[in-house]
Design a protein around this nucleic acid. Sequence first.
DNA 1: TGTTAAGCGAGACGGTACGTCGCGTCTTAAT
DNA 2: ATTAAGACGCGACGTACCGTCTCGCTTAACA
Lengths: 186, 186, 186, 186
Amino acid sequence: MARPRSEDARRKALVAASDLLVERGVAHLTIDEVATRSGVAKTTIYRHWPERTSLIVDAVNVNLEHVGPPDTGSLRGDLEAFFGGMIRSDLSGNVAHIIPCLVEAAGRDPEMASLLERIGSERERVMKTIVAQAVERGELRVDLDIETLVGVIVGPIVFQKVVRRRPLTEEYVTACLDIALAGLVA
Amino acid sequence: MARPRSEDARRKALVAASDLLVERGVAHLTIDEVATRSGVAKTTIYRHWPERTSLIVDAVNVNLEHVGPPDTGSLRGDLEAFFGGMIRSDLSGNVAHIIPCLVEAAGRDPEMASLLERIGSERERVMKTIVAQAVERGELRVDLDIETLVGVIVGPIVFQKVVRRRPLTEEYVTACLDIALAGLVA
Amino acid sequence: MARPRSEDARRKALVAASDLLVERGVAHLTIDEVATRSGVAKTTIYRHWPERTSLIVDAVNVNLEHVGPPDTGSLRGDLEAFFGGMIRSDLSGNVAHIIPCLVEAAGRDPEMASLLERIGSERERVMKTIVAQAVERGELRVDLDIETLVGVIVGPIVFQKVVRRRPLTEEYVTACLDIALAGLVA
Amino acid sequence: MARPRSEDARRKALVAASDLLVERGVAHLTIDEVATRSGVAKTTIYRHWPERTSLIVDAVNVNLEHVGPPDTGSLRGDLEAFFGGMIRSDLSGNVAHIIPCLVEAAGRDPEMASLLERIGSERERVMKTIVAQAVERGELRVDLDIETLVGVIVGPIVFQKVVRRRPLTEEYVTACLDIALAGLVA
DNA sequence: TGTTAAGCGAGACGGTACGTCGCGTCTTAAT
DNA sequence: ATTAAGACGCGACGTACCGTCTCGCTTAACA
């Protein structure tokens, strides 16, 4: 019966939050500034998101590029296509800058944890498709544990970028894939 | 005429900080509470550490177990010994809980970045010793890039624990090592 | 062509406002709560009363007992009858609790000032009738300034109740009347 | 052992509050503006006064002129001197503007009530001295109830100024005193 | 006897102020 | 000179009401 929540206000706040997220990082995103920038009142922001973290959760999602599974005809090609996309978008872009914040926040905030989970799941789902295609093509054994498999392929890359904080070169990615694939088909 | 800085105060503050770090996480560690708990005045804390992060840096170090390189006679044995140690100490313990905070903080704070670097280096140094021993024994080729190699072995494990936030089972570690080693000797 | 304003809504809002006025005092009467309690929408309330104070004005009037001039045959009797009524209604009841609010609001809000004026006038008009009757009966001199006269009789009573905030006993009223009447006929 | 509360901060905040009180009235005095004007941080203000009303209480006291009892040699002279002072200071000045706010607030806030009580007591104490001197001089009977007596003299004046909100002329005061004194000595 | 404009409930909106928390700096007295 | 204690300026937090503004729905007066 009442007026519906303004989608416009929501969008404007989200854009402002998303921008500030990239500019200042999670810890320095303030609701007050989101309000000022977006022209949306602080109270309205709190009507849409019960607390700071909830807004951040959504703002992060805005920054995520939602990639689909490639199908190049070979496992190697699919992986390179996938990680090539990740390198260009997520890991070289804004998200790489934000993920550690999420990981950190996830340690205390269940909502953050579930966001992180969702982000991970989406990427893992793509990985599973790639692997399933490879299994179908006979490039991989059927009996491999998918969680381990994803860990072996994705782990070194995420580790390099997020934990080690070193640039994610094509050489590094290629070398890791070489080793992992060699180990998998062996 | 001057009194030296009290090592006692420093230690008490550090212990309290370390405890709170584990209890509440980095973001909710407040200097005020460290002061209250430890009985050390806030002023004194700021005298010993110029800012919050510096204290956290030291508090993290307290929680780190400093492991040396094993020498079991085989690469496989060395790795299992090493990661077994890590599983028991760092990654199953408090540090896994703290690393994301450091990673996050490293994004903004150079000092944090260098702490993270130091922690990483220490572990990487051990890894390098293990690898060198393996090369010496003829278990590995000489031409492998050490950074890639460490990434391939450590990446999946850290990824599982820190980013995926899933329990680090012996099966997972074993499976990852199997694949990586197979790929490396191939 | 249009529907007339609902008298029912007006009444319900007014009752709720009047209740809250007594329960919480003017300063803590919120439109939101009047709306919630009465079941009348905030919009509707604002349609009936342009602002908070207007509603309060009307709510006060609801609480007022409108007394007529007594005619006991003597000034003394009339005054005792009149103030007896005031003691029982206004000053011992809710209104005494509200008057200071009005007085305060009158300082800023002309509408409030005029309400206060109206309330005062009504009572003063009764007083004037009583005095006129007394003059007619020869109990009082003709040349007395009516404003002063009312002030001398009403002042001590209102002062006791409203400013001093002490209970308005029959003894106090009698004693004040004794003195004032003695002074007036002297 | 710690630093004492800054008397300077307290004073500056109080002055700003006192000014705003007169400028805007009790209801529109905001802590934020007191902070801005005084240059004292809002948190500091809250350290000194637990809540808005406490600050107002003190700010009102600043505006009060603390008058002593006159001794002109006659009751009449003393009263005129006293009320002349009140007319010049309190009732024509800022306090008359503030008292209704206090009276209103006293209805809900015990601290306000006690402030009002204190203000009243101080003035009543002076009145009692005046009366005692008159009794000593034989101008008044000994058996008069002091509360009633003060009410009879002060009531009409306060009523005129505070409740009726009409100007407090010398004629009105004189006329009231005439009647009251006539009644008292009768 | 429909039509239709206003009234209505619900509640979202932009604001302003609230009172609180933690930061990093400072002052003071005591050791 | 260093410490414990804690006050200080600052900036952000999340909340409460204000008075205004849509929303659909209901309803009485007019056509």
